[in-house]
Design a protein around this nucleic acid. Structure first.
Length: 572
RNA sequence: GGGCCUGUAGCUCAAUUGGUUAGAGCAGAGCGCUCAUAACGCUUUGGUUGGGGGUUCGAGUCCCUCCGGGCCUACCA
């Protein structure tokens, strides 16, 4: 039995995430976690909310609430949505937890001890009206290059020129619109990751089996212009982890917090600790997942994330982990995803364009979304959600191929033999051929799951479902029954066992349908098959079952058209 | 501007890393079946692999160039 540590990129606290966010990290991570648990491995699956930073403060202000209260409420919302999508986290933590505060401060202290923290005095724009320092992109003004009047302090969206806030003509706060701005000096801590560049470079180069998307982004940052730059890890904000050197005060850093990107990945560790604390377990319970010197040497650590997160996970966080020099377990595999687009454009949180997690669950249950999203995961390039494609895929795959198979087998059995696995009859060459095919396909399915080739795994699973229909058509128990009921019984006995097999194999993709099938078949304790021949004999003759309601209803044209208009923009 | 990814059948995607005649699913067409959610099965029509050039015995795959789509570019996270 292996030990697998799985983390999903942690979603930002600021609002409900859309399906593109879901398929880029949490959903594939859940698929992998469920599969690995199914195979009998010990899994620790961690996610959390990422709560610090300017956007959270602004969202809270907009909602008229203290930021801590706002975050607590939004955590609740995201937690429930995660449950709605059947995301099987062992812990869904919060980056604002005391555990993360302590660990973040600890890491900063270790990095300082090891000479990896520098102090840099820099100039930042302060807004009197907002009573805060403004990140570059929260300053707007007229672009000196093209005259665009809504250029941001980091870049002009119109002419794409890189800017400094001080380049802007008539700069103003993007928050309040105030022009009462002042450039102030402020001192910040920098993670001197440039010192670790060669080590990170060698490490990335050794990861030849990683997705090209992951390594190419990492290489770009390592080798671009001057190479890997040091990164500021503190901010002048109220909401965040207070800057401390371990447990000691950090002179000159009072009233500052760590940059959200410094504390967010550390939350992976902290959330594991939150889990251990919640379970009333000792430190060794979480440390055995993270510290190589405390039992984590045999852990395989896999991260899931959208491509925008890759630089932080391939460079900054590893620099933190390596720099602390405490035998922390580095990530072993990074699965990264492109973006899912929505019907010819991008999902847009600000414009309310596309389908958001709460809306999705209002119109259809989790399995529909899970199946479509995972079987179309944007692994190699950006992919696109269209309602036509969604309707066609879901109706065909789930309702026709899988759902109808279950329906035809169970209903035929009920009408001819009653609601128990029929005895009588023996299987022959046709069944041997089927078992051989299923075994080959199972091997392929497992190989794709191990390699986290999600679309390929989905295609193979679908082929496994389809094989049942092919077999049934070929064996034609409805015709055989007229001459030889015993032979028909053998065919149906096998087919009922196929349903059980499908429930087990499909669980990572469509857990609700899987559970309903196992309940209908009266076998909740269904383990992963060792081999097909044994698995298709698991349900013995005489074993009672119930005919389940139709597993999946179909999406009608009317519903599709309705949703199409409803989600085309501006959520209400 | 720079870098990276990408372009394969009407649609969504494969192609053992340079090797026979480029394959699946959906959609379309035909046939079959009647157990089943008008479901299922079988057969089948679709491709000058974005255009052009080059290397090679051989190119979807490597090189050059042009065209299209996308992402990143370090203070949003």
């Amino acid at each position: 039995m292996a030990r697998i540590l799985i983390t999903s990129a942690i979603p930002y606290i600021n609002g409900i995430k859309h399906l593109g966010n879901l398929v880029g990290s949490q959903l594939p991570a859940d698929l992998y976690a469920r599969y690995m648990r199914g195979r009998g491995h010990e899994v620790m699956f961690i996610c959390a909310t990422d709560e610090h930073g300017t956007p959270a403060e602004l969202a809270a202000a907009k909602a008229g609430k203290p930021v801590a209260e706002y975050c607590a409420e939004m955590w609740q919302v995201q937690d429930e949505l995660g449950k709605g999508f059947r995301l099987s986290f062992d812990k869904f933590g919060r980056s604002s937890s005391p555990q993360n505060r302590a660990l973040t401060q600890y890491f900063a202290g270790r990095l300082a001890e090891n000479g990896l923290i520098g102090e840099v005095t820099e100039k930042q724009v302060y807004s009197h009206a907002d009573a805060r320092f403004l990140p570059d992109r929260y300053i707007e003004g007229t672009c000196p290059n093209c005259g665009y009047d809504k250029a941001r302090g980091d870049q002009c969206e119109n002419c794409t020129k890189q800017l400094d806030p001080t380049d802007l003509i008539e700069p103003r706060s993007a928050i309040s619109g105030s022009t009462d701005l002042e450039v102030r000096e402020t001192k910040h801590l920098y993670l001197r990751q440039s010192l670790l560049k060669d080590r990170l470079d060698a490490w990335i180069s050794s990861k030849t089996d990683w997705p090209i998307l992951t390594t190419s982004i990492a290489r770009k940052w390592l080798h671009d212009s001057d190479g890997l730059q040091d990164r500021g890890i503190t901010r002048d904000l109220d909401w965040g982890v207070p800057v401390k050197r371990g447990e000691e005060p950090w002179p000159g850093m009072e009233d500052k917090v760590f940059y959200v990107w410094f504390d967010a990945p550390i939350e992976y560790i902290a959330a594991t600790r939150e889990w251990a604390d919640a379970e009333a377990l000792g430190d060794e319970a979480w440390q055995r997942w993270w510290r190589n010197d405390k039992g984590a040497a045999d852990v395989r650590y896999v991260q899931f994330m959208g491509k925008d997160n890759v630089p932080f996970h391939t460079l900054s966080f590893p620099a933190t982990i390596i720099g602390a020099d405490d035998n922390w377990h580095l990530v072993d595999y990074i699965k990264s995803f492109n973006y899912l687009n929505y019907d010819g454009g991008q999902f847009s949180t600000s414009q309310g364009r596309g389908v958001f997690m709460d809306q999705a669950l209002e119109i259809l249950s989790a399995d529909y979304w899970r199946w479509w999203l995972l079987s179309h995961a944007p692994e190699n390039s950006d992919s696109e959600f269209t309602w036509e494609n969604f309707q066609a895929s879901v109706n065909k795959d789930l309702a026709d191929v899988l759902g109808n198979f279950v329906s035809r087998v169970t209903k035929f059995c009920r009408s001819k033999f009653g609601e128990a696995v029929p005895e009588d009859g023996t299987t022959g060459k046709r069944e041997t051929v089927l078992i051989g095919e299923l075994q080959r396909r199972l091997d392929a399915y497992q190989a794709h799951m191990e390699a986290i080739e999600i679309r390929k795994a989905a295609a193979e699973l679908r082929a496994i479902w389809a094989a049942g229909n092919e077999y049934l058509q070929d064996a034609a128990p409805w015709a055989v029954f007229k001459q030889d009921p015993a032979q028909a019984a053998a065919i149906i006995r096998l087919s009922l066992n196929l349903i059980r097999l499908y429930a087990v194999l499909s669980q990572p993709f469509i857990p609700d349908a899987s559970a309903r099938l196992l309940t209908a078949l009266g076998c909740e304790e269904a383990g992963w098959p060792d081999d097909i021949a044994t698995a298709v004999a698991a349900l013995p003759a005489g074993h009672g079952f119930a005919v389940p309601d139709n597993l999946f209803g179909k999406i009608t044209d009317e519903a599709r058209q309705d949703w199409q208009t409803r989600f085309s923009g501006t959520r209400t």
